[in-house]
Computed example of a mutant assay.
Amino acid sequence: MAEGPAGVRRRGVLRATGLALLAAPLGCAARAPAALDAAGAQRLLDRRARELLDPARGARPADPFSARLARVPLRSWTYRVTSVSTDATGERATLRADLDHRIAGHDPAPVTSARTLALRRGPDRWHVTAERPAPGARPGLWDHGPVDVVHGTRTLVLGTARGEEHRTELTRLAALADRAVEEVGTAWDEDWTRRLLVVVPGSPEAMAALLGEPAAGYRGIAAVTTGRRGPGPADRIVVNPEAYRELSAFGRRIVLTHEATHVATRARTSARTPMWLSEGYADWAAHRAEPAGPALRQRAPALARAVRDGRAPERLPTDADFGFGNDPERLARAYEGAWLACRLVADHWGRPRLNALYRAVDAARPGAGAAEAVLGEVLGVTAAEFTARWRARLLRDLG
């Protein structure tokens, strides 16, 4: 309890005379905390936010949630109370709040999530005893345990902490991601942040939880990029630790460069951009940096099998072909076919024209068939003529 000058003098007297110790319970009794209302709850969460932003936050063993964030470079962390409920005893309470947070050096705008906090009434104040995602809300990486952090030159990697061996893996990943930034810069000719934020959860299930999707759809997916067009938080490249670990060194470079390309082209990717162009361009940017990689049939094995079996596709991949819940062969053929379509544009018309095609589709008038209409404007061919050239090249190169 805070005391003025009189209180200070009183403490001096208590030290000087043992008889005055009898007055100690009256002079220093803790004031019971008031019933919790919205204003009081907001003040409590404001204090909690300041503590979580404190550089010494990891040194508070009594708050395990704070320790989980100890290494995370937070720029901001702010709660907004949305509801307060207290149990019948008045000793425990539950808060609902919206949380805004930003990662320093990456998020130009906050990430917003709904949170639930459990509180207990103490002798002098209310205390947070637990924090978790609100029902139906996506968790943060820190909701799965302590977060390890590795800084690259242009990359920040956040991973579920699992010991020094795992930290070494995160360090290697950061180096590959830095290389990916450079490789994308040789393909995409527009300015972008040239910074990557990579998140590595501890399991495919944790990855799916971060994405708000069923785990089954991501079993064979090594990484995905989340984000939105326009002002907002930075894109996150979310890595599936099991699928990524199974890749060769070549495969890991392809995956990270592919995802970095999505980050670079985000500002030019819209609902008008067909997935064969967005995914194909990302694969083209990744593969062009690896001229000494495996032969073409090895890089496009699913499509090569289809061509050899007399099942060469008659059309470019549709958006439906890229569904993560699809048969793995269908999904693989979609990605490989999209890559080879963009490779055809770059080889026949040149890299600047491929980039111009990507931008022109984004700028096209809304409506179905934007990409097909733009093919004629940028490449001088109809959609049917382009598809025929693409199919002929598949038969030639993969047959």
Rank of each mutant, 00 (worst) to 15 (best):
E3R: 15
E3A: 12
G4E: 11
G7R: 11
R15A: 14
G18F: 12
L22D: 04
P25T: 00
L26R: 01
A29N: 10
A34R: 11
A39W: 04
L45H: 01
D46T: 08
A49G: 14
L53I: 02
A59N: 10
D63N: 14
F65S: 06
F65W: 10
S66G: 13
L69I: 09
W77F: 15
Y79V: 05
T82K: 10
T82Y: 07
I103T: 15
A104V: 01
A104W: 08
A109G: 13
V111A: 12
A114G: 07
L117D: 05
A118S: 15
A118W: 04
R120E: 13
P123H: 11
W126F: 09
T129A: 14
T129I: 00
A130Q: 11
A130H: 11
E131L: 10
A134N: 07
W142D: 14
H144Q: 15
T153P: 05
R154W: 08
T155R: 02
V157D: 12
G159E: 10
G159F: 06
T160H: 14
R162L: 00
R162P: 01
E164S: 15
E164M: 08
E164D: 15
E165H: 15
E169T: 13
L170R: 11
R172K: 08
R172M: 05
L176K: 06
A177W: 03
G185C: 05
D189E: 13
D191G: 02
D191F: 07
W192P: 05
T193G: 03
T193Q: 10
L196S: 04
L196A: 09
L196T: 02
L197N: 11
V198P: 05
V199C: 15
V200Y: 06
E213K: 10
R219V: 09
A223Y: 01
A223G: 08
G232W: 01
V238W: 00
E242M: 14
E242I: 07
G251Q: 03
G251T: 00
E259Y: 02
V263H: 02
V263K: 01
A264V: 08
S270I: 02
L277R: 04
L277I: 04
L277M: 11
Y281M: 07
Y281W: 13
D283P: 02
W284I: 03
H287V: 09
E290W: 02
P291Y: 02
A295H: 14
L296W: 01
L296D: 05
R299H: 09
A300C: 07
R308S: 03
D309N: 15
D309I: 09
G310R: 03
A312F: 07
P313I: 11
R315Y: 08
T318K: 11
A320K: 01
D321W: 12
D321T: 05
D327C: 05
P328I: 02
P328K: 10
W339P: 04
V345M: 02
D347P: 00
W349Q: 06
P352E: 06
P352M: 10
R353I: 13
R353Q: 11
Y358F: 11
Y358V: 06
A364Y: 07
G367K: 05
E377V: 11
A388I: 08
W390D: 02
A392N: 15
R393T: 00
L394Y: 03
R396E: 14
D397S: 10
D397V: 08
L398R: 09
L398C: 06
